[in-house]
Design a protein around this nucleic acid. Structure first.
Lengths: 201, 201
DNA sequence: CGTGTACTTGATCGTCTTCAAGAGCGGTGG
DNA sequence: CCACCGCTCTTGAAGACGATCAAGTACACG
């Protein structure tokens, strides 16, 4: 969708499908730094920072909305309330990044994977893309490895552990959380950081 | 300075000293998710997200400026150009987080440490806190470990490697980069993401 | 001087990586 | 219709990187 180094003139909102941001290192390793679900602004910051410091990947076919930077400019000039909401979206983005960092740096592979599933589930729930504890996760294990900072092989083993513990089932693209309290506990998951509370903004 | 769970009514700007943000996990492990140098907003997002999802630590004695949330509110309402700059600051924050994530997830301990030093050096240079390639780094190796996601022992070994390679010297609180090109190369460091370029905003 | 904190060093252990190979499955073309 | 190819998932074995445990050293500060 967008490549590192680009200087887009419009920002994109994800309407349908899954997308992600990633960086590739010299040595070929890839780190996915964000997963986007419908409703997310995938590159609001391109309006503010001009040149992309990472690429954006359509994980599934996506339908997206394009918002010209001029429009964003206008929002900042003339619609302070909306501008504020855009800023909130940036701040939530950063908060998710921070919690992701904590997971990469200080959690075991198992806890980290559990944490990602928890966070993703809650975000999908908000936009109505869950059925009970079931949701679509169209990632290959290799891609999941790139988001968790693990090798594909190890992801496989971790996923099998989660299955053996009856915490999740995962067939094809569908994941079901079988024991939400226990998964949350394993992940040490606290949804506060997602800022989903209804707060006066 | 601020504790996780707080609901501050003002945001703080760091004027002098070093600060950092961190989270502590159930198991007692700590991850530092950001280091702040003078000029940084340490918790602009508390204005937008209301409840803090992490704590802020004064690493050295700090002098800070307090900006009441009402003032920020007023900026968003009546000073669109300033509001835009605040948003840029949020976006840069997120960009730093992303690159930090890439480092934690996909770089070796040595590369990661080198990367952190590069990024810190450049940021300090911008605010005039370097003398040539020399700057103050008032972190203990244990704290550095918490920011890199490593044990203190391993940080020590990595630092010694950097010294043996004549890439840096580090005595007391002062670090000198002895071979900037080679350090940058080892770290695979590209300063684009810091958005220091003069761009029309 | 003595005490506490940071730094250093060595040894062992565990988690995750890498390498290698095989199984399952869907899609394509002969 | 079936053979083949490619991709994903799975499993095993070996090895590396970093964690943990345990002492010991250097140094600042009271």
């Amino acid at each position: 969708m967008i490549r590192e180094g680009d200087r887009p003139t419009e920002s994109t909102v994800l309407i349908e499908g899954f997308a992600g941001r990633y960086n590739v290192l010299r040595n070929g390793k890839r780190q996915i730094t964000a997963l986007h679900v419908p409703g997310d602004f995938t590159d609001l910051h391109s309006f503010l920072l001009k040149t992309m410091d990472h690429s954006v990947l359509a994980i599934t076919p996506c339908t997206i909305g394009m918002v010209p930077h001029e429009t964003l400019h206008d929002i900042f000039e003339n619609h302070p309330h909306l501008a504020r909401l855009l800023a909130v979206s940036l701040a939530v983005d950063a908060a998710i990044h921070r919690h992701w960092m904590v997971a990469v740096g200080r959690r075991s592979a198992l806890e980290h994977a559990a944490h990602l599933l928890c966070a993703l589930f809650v975000r999908l729930q908000v936009v109505g893309l869950t059925e009970g504890y079931r949701f679509r996760l169209p990632l290959t294990q290799a891609e999941l490895g790139d988001t968790l900072g693990l090798s594909a092989v190890h992801v496989n083993r971790v996923v099998q552990d989660l299955r053996k513990e009856n915490l999740i089932t995962w067939r094809g693209e569908m994941v079901t959380i079988e024991d939400w309290p226990r998964l949350q506990q394993l992940a040490d998951f606290d949804p506060t950081f997602l800022s989903l509370q209804n707060e006066p903004r």
